[in-house]
Nucleic acid binder design. Structure first.
Length: 356
RNA sequence: UGGGGUGUAGCCAAGCGGUAAGGCACGGGACUUUGACUCCCGCAUUCGUAGGUUCGAACCCUGCCACCCCAG
């Protein structure tokens, strides 16, 4: 088979390419550059990553290319990301990036190159179910990335391959080390995909102008000033700059954003009941096999990446969902994705609109 | 300017003669392909200020300054 491997410059995709090459496939490494800016230090991290991809492909002995989807990324991921923040919500750009870029624009590109499949270094697995291809959690529970792939549907999944999905991170590093891949010891990357780690608030400020307002308690007492509601998210505590207000001495958390009044509402203490909710409503529901298991069903869910599985009941109404959690959930945040699982099978998910 | 009170890090706040608790904030790190949460580490040679008493004071005494309260 001819397989295009999306190479990020990291170990996971490098080992993915290596394993497929060893299996005798015709492998082509392709690097995506989707963000043009340099980081705070003025260094274009993409340059280093591209060099790592070249060195890795040379070490494996496969050809490589670089493609640029900067425009597509900006138009179908970043613009939405900004408009969501503008609305005071907290989007997850990476779930969109997977659907719109890696498994759409990039997949199309791979197909044009004549590839049969597109492989990536995601820690997730694919399975065969009676309703089609299943998306499964990666074997390494600690690194499972199926959460970020929940928006994928059958067409892209039929072309996808996740070679490291049934390996642990330690095994991946071990393979890279044995094969003497140049990136075997490279540090795992975090931060928004393609944009990377950076001072998030400062980054947003570069796109969304400051709109100051009051930081107030539930009963309206003004505790301080904030520079823009969009820079904060529910459940957040750092960056508020308020302390020692009362002898209680607890930490303050954001419990609500009053967009009209430009007020950031905070509450003291970790036990703030206002931060918890059992019922939430989500939109834009998507399902791996194209449809929900039933119109109403029980399963487990993650309200954010890496959260422990939560028992929930889901009621489906078109693309709208009503989700009831068995245990109250902390800081269910509009814009974030709720992703459903049945055991190791990722069913799909939706985007939180509001929580009660 | 009569009386009373208080002045400890950015904010709360312990300390009451023996050589500066704690919390919040903040900074750094860990964790992490979103944003958060969480965890770890750091954070006053100095206690409004100037003197004095004492082997030794943030704690005792005196002057001054600032703020608060009650009287005017």
């Amino acid at each position: 088979m001819k397989i295009v491997v999306g190479m990020s410059g990291g170990v996971d995709s490098a080992v993915s390419a290596l394993l497929l090459h060893r299996d005798g496939h015709e492998v082509v490494g392709v690097f995506m550059k989707n963000w043009e800016e340099t980081d705070e230090d003025g260094i274009c991290t993409a340059t280093q990553d591209w060099e790592d991809v070249q060195a890795t492909c040379d070490a494996i002995g496969i050809p490589y290319y670089a493609v640029n989807f900067t425009r597509e990324y900006r138009d179908s991921v970043f613009s939405h990301f900004l408009s969501e923040y503008q609305r005071g919500r907290t989007p997850n750009p990476d779930v969109l990036c997977n659907r719109e870029i890696k498994f759409k624009a990039f997949l199309d590109f791979a197909m044009k190159l004549g590839a049969d499949r597109l492989a990536t270094g995601h820690f997730a697995r694919l399975g065969e179910g009676k309703d089609g291809v299943q998306l499964l959690r990666g074997v390494d529970a600690n690194k499972d990335q199926s959460y970020f792939l929940y928006m994928l549907t059958q067409p892209p999944l039929e072309k996808a391959m996740f070679p490291v999905g049934d390996l642990t991170k330690a095994e991946v590093r071990g393979i890279a080390r044995e094969a003497k891949l140049p990136v075997s010891e490279k540090r795992d990357s975090t931060g928004v995909c393609f944009i990377g780690e950076r001072d998030f608030k400062a980054f947003l400020k570069g796109f969304l102008p400051a709109q100051p307002g009051d930081i107030v308690t539930e009963d309206g007492k003004v505790l301080g000033q904030h520079d823009g509601l969009m820079y904060y998210t529910l459940g957040q505590r750092r960056g508020l700059g308020i302390g020692g207000v009362s002898e209680k001495g607890g930490r303050w958390f954001v419990i609500e954003k009053d967009m009209e009044g430009k007020r950031l509402i905070v509450q003291q203490g970790t036990d703030s009941q206002r931060l918890y909710s059992s019922v939430c409503y989500a939109d834009d529901a998507t399902w791996i096999v194209g449809a929900p298991p039933m119109q109403s069903f029980d399963c487990t869910a993650k309200y954010r990446y890496r959260q422990a599985d939560q028992r929930v009941h889901v009621e489906v109404d078109g693309t709208h969902l009503r989700i009831t959690a068995e245990a109250p959930q902390r800081a269910v945040t509009p814009g974030q994705s709720v992703v459903f699982y049945d055991g190791d099978v990722c069913l799909g998910g939706g985007v939180v609109d509001r929580a009660d």
